[in-house]
């Protein structure tokens, strides 16, 4: 097995002295989709945001332990968080397009971070949109407002925008939870296509999605009021399937612990419990 691109060791995250994640260790390799599943509020998004140091933009969070990216701890003094975020791209739950044209959205990061000539811009626009499987839908209206795209197209536009920076790792925070089944399928197809050249870390609520697209899945549970790694395994392995379907992990996320975490995640996910129920039934 190749050396892991991401090697997370004993990662502990606290928010205002409250424990969110306790000693999580995980590895992610090139050519691999790492799935992170677990009930709402267990700290999956927090974990994801720690990997590209987005977490430090929010006050109150403290991170202990190591996150090694190509063997170097990303918290070392010589690591520039902005440069790190160019190499570790991120896709959010809700697609966020900027109020400008499709072309400018795709090049939003790249055109500001690199000096691009006219032909380079065109080439980058082409390759990024193709890799996000959006090229054929938008190639004739690159200079139209991106806000007119459907929400599924907007999410792929966000993907193209991240891909324009040619990141080695793509973090995806429940990228399909706002999308309809068809748009979800398009994103899942992209995830499978991207892993040839990149490493994908996918946070998802959806066990079926985890089975469909991940190569390795880590399950976070909140047994003691904070997130811990319950197990990690191949998602299609019989034992893993049984464990994934096992309800104790989901059930342990009682409403009280949900409430506990909703204060941290800003109560952002009112659908959390519904999602857990569907996850249980999906198993």
């Amino acid at each position: 097995m190749p050396d892991p691109i991401l090697d997370i060791r004993d990662l502990t995250i606290t928010a205002r002295r409250r424990l969110i994640l306790d000693r999580v260790s995980l590895q992610a390799r090139r050519g691999q989709v790492l799935g992170i599943i677990g009930p709402s509020g267990v700290g999956k998004s927090t974990l994801l945001r720690a990997i590209n140091r987005m977490l430090e933009l929010q006050p109150g969070y403290r991170v202990k332990g190591e996150i090694r990216f190509h063997g170097h701890d990303i918290h070392d003094a010589d690591v520039d968080p902005d440069t790190l975020r160019q190499r570790i791209g991120m896709i959010f739950q809700q697609p966020v397009v900027f109020p400008t044209t499709i072309a400018k959205n795709v090049l939003f990061g790249a055109a500001r971070l690199r000096r691009l000539g006219k032909s380079e811009r065109a080439a980058l626009l082409d390759s990024s949109l193709r890799e996000a499987a959006l090229w054929h839908e938008v190639k004739d209206r690159l200079h139209d407002s991106a806000l007119r795209l459907s929400i599924g197209q907007q999410q792929r536009l966000c993907l193209a925008r991240a891909l324009a920076l040619d990141p080695e790792v793509i973090l995806m925070d429940e990228p399909t939870s706002a999308l309809d089944p068809k748009a979800t399928e398009a994103i899942e197809e992209r995830i499978l296509a991207m892993k040839a050249t990149r490493c994908v870390v996918l946070v998802t609520h959806n066990l079926d999605q985890a089975r469909r697209v991940t190569d390795w899945v880590a399950c976070l549970c909140a047994d003691n009021g904070h997130g811990e790694l319950r197990f990690s395994s191949f998602p299609r392995d019989g034992r893993a399937s049984a464990m994934l379907s096992e309800t104790s992990c989901w059930a342990s996320s009682t409403p009280s612990s949900l409430r506990l975490f909703s204060s941290v995640s800003g109560g952002r996910r009112r659908l959390g419990r519904i999602a857990i129920l569907s996850a249980c039934s999906a198993g």
């Binding site: 987005m54 933009l57 160019q86 959010f92 966020v96 900027f98 939003f108």
Partner: peptide, 10 residues
């Protein structure tokens, strides 16, 4: 939007 921009490494 601010998060997305920060996520691009801007």
């Amino acid at each position: 939007q601010l998060d997305a921009a920060a996520g691009l490494g801007l």
